[in-house]
Write a protein that binds this DNA or RNA. Sequence first.
DNA 1: CTTGCACCTCACGTCAACGTCAGGTCGTAC
DNA 2: GTACGACCTGACGTTGACGTGAGGTGCAAG
Lengths: 118, 118
Amino acid sequence: MRIGQLARRSGVSVRALRYYEEQRLLESARTPGGQRDYPDEALERVQLIQDLFAAGLSSRTVVELLPCVSTGVATPAMLDQLITERDRIAARIRDLNRARTKLGRVIENVTAASVVQD
Amino acid sequence: MRIGQLARRSGVSVRALRYYEEQRLLESARTPGGQRDYPDEALERVQLIQDLFAAGLSSRTVVELLPCVSTGVATPAMLDQLITERDRIAARIRDLNRARTKLGRVIENVTAASVVQD
DNA sequence: CTTGCACCTCACGTCAACGTCAGGTCGTAC
DNA sequence: GTACGACCTGACGTTGACGTGAGGTGCAAG
């Protein structure tokens, strides 16, 4: 599978895929002509990377954690980092819930005011 | 209240406070000598700004929404934007929950594997 | 009056995850 | 053999929320 097709299937840009390779997040075989050739599993890999990015992990963190995420084997240090990241995400979720609640109240306020105006 | 004290009380940097002013998120009176002088309400304001930033809103969005957040009065367009942002936050929370669950499973996996090794 | 910390205004630097452009190559269909 | 889209490698540009000096001023204390 070539890079354009992987890009379309995964929904990320060609540039992003090359960036992932540069960051050692994703490998590729090469055709004799030098073009990237991905196996089918690359699709899952890319989706996993996207999930971790979406969770706010940096590429440095992802490259450190990807091995144990895909193999299930981790050193104590990696386990620590996994837990740290999970807790960071949980904290972020709490922040977002606070903000959402706050915005929700503002919306109620505003809506109520406009109802009064009707 | 001067900028250093506001910074310490709110937990944001002096630079950030000046940046907020530059972005029209925060006003300040000036002493005859040209130094910023904040009223006590500035503290809540800064915390509100931080909450909205933490929720992933840009300073442009915040500057558009701050008036109705503090006054409770909004145009229909502002209400739309409020709802859009709230929904965006909700979607982000769903993403984060997915990622957290995923990491949680990885942690379980890894932990189980090490238990087996014991 | 001078020490010295807090404050001021530019204005360039940073960092991550790509976007974008230049200039050249691959591969396959005609 | 040529047309042409997909691909290649640099390498510079972008964006947001500040960080970080440089060089100068405000102000309360001794």
